[in-house]
């Protein structure tokens, strides 16, 4: 185990974590403010990837694709908020789960009707398709570095939005003192729709950003959705800071387990069973992490103060 390999794998873990953060941030924000659990968040991610891929293919510009993907996520989220989610605010979580589960079925089939059953193409822009030598002898994909930058930028933007703006103040107040905010004459409906659209934009952005490294196909949303759940459970529901911490922790745990467990176990067990045990442990590393965190802190690392 060399120091450079360790550094590289750590960077890989951070990059994966950042991608998870883009998904988890919207999910946790929506939950924190509206107390809504939205399973269809994965569908927004998928929609972003498909729309982004189509726009990139038509225009030849990845940047336009990113904008279109995020816009599609926001637009569909807004539409969902107005037609469905709005009716679920006063319902219990069970109804929310089922309604948004029904939405998943609908969206997956809808995408199949529009784009067909086969995965579609979405490539990184030419200037990001190469590698950058981050350490001597360690070329790193430029696109992955770009994903890290975009994720950090999104996190900073969210931090600024929530911490420094009037909207953010209302959002923060809305989570804890909904009645007070209403009494101040703020239209909570508009506020909620806005938050939902922001969450949708982040999911769409995550989808289109994931496109060049992951398959753009039906069902892609649910895969990452479940990991995003683990992230926000670990980080603490409703907290953007928690989502960041959870995402990085999950990303690192997952990558490190896969990278270093086989090496560690080969020192302890015969090679054939070491690979097997390592693979099995690697499969459940994230869930074990979640179990441990919950056993110690049931409300997650950064619980929301309700």
């Amino acid at each position: 185990m060399t120091a450079t390999l360790f550094a590289e794998q750590t960077l890989n873990g951070l990059q994966f974590g950042v991608m998870l953060f883009l998904m988890a941030a919207g999910l946790t924000l929506i939950f924190g403010i509206m107390d809504v659990i939205n399973l269809a968040h994965g569908s927004l991610y998928m929609a972003g990837a498909f729309v982004g891929g189509t726009v990139t293919a038509r225009t030849g510009s990845f940047l336009l694709g990113v904008v279109a993907g995020a816009a599609a996520g926001a637009l569909i989220a807004l539409l969902l908020e107005l037609t469905v989610i709005r009716r679920l605010y006063r319902r219990d979580h069970l109804d929310q789960v089922l309604a948004t589960y029904a939405l998943i079925l609908t969206f997956n089939e809808g995408v199949k009707v529009i784009w067909g059953p086969a995965p579609i193409f979405l490539a990184a822009p030419e200037m990001l398709s190469g590698t950058v030598e981050i350490l001597p002898g360690v070329p790193y994909p430029a696109y992955r570095l770009a994903v890290i930058c975009a994720g950090v930028a999104a996190a900073l933007f969210l931090g600024w939005l929530i911490g420094r703006t009037r909207t953010g103040m209302l959002i923060r107040a809305g989570t804890t003192h909904r009645e007070t905010v209403q009494a101040l004459g703020v239209d909570v409906g508009v506020l909620f729709a806005l938050v939902f659209a922001i969450g949708g934009a982040l999911a769409g952005l995550a989808g289109v950003m994931a496109g060049p490294v992951l398959a753009v196909q039906v069902g892609m949303g649910e895969q990452i959705l479940i990991l995003a759940f683990v992230v926000i459970v670990v980080g603490g529901l409703g907290s953007v800071k928690g989502a960041m911490a959870g995402a990085l922790l999950v990303g690192l745990a997952d990558t490190w387990a896969r990278a270093f467990l086989p090496v560690l176990l080969r020192g302890l067990l015969p090679p054939s069973s070491a690979d097997q045990v390592a693979a099995n442990l690697g499969s459940v590393a994230v869930y074990l992490l979640m179990a441990v965190v919950l056993a110690v802190r049931p409300q997650g690392l950064f619980p929301r103060h309700a």
Binding site: Q9, N12, F16, R258, A259
Partner: peptide, 8 residues
């Protein structure tokens, strides 16, 4: 989803 660890 991510194969960075294996690629390294």
């Amino acid at each position: 989803l991510d194969y960075a660890a294996e690629l390294a």
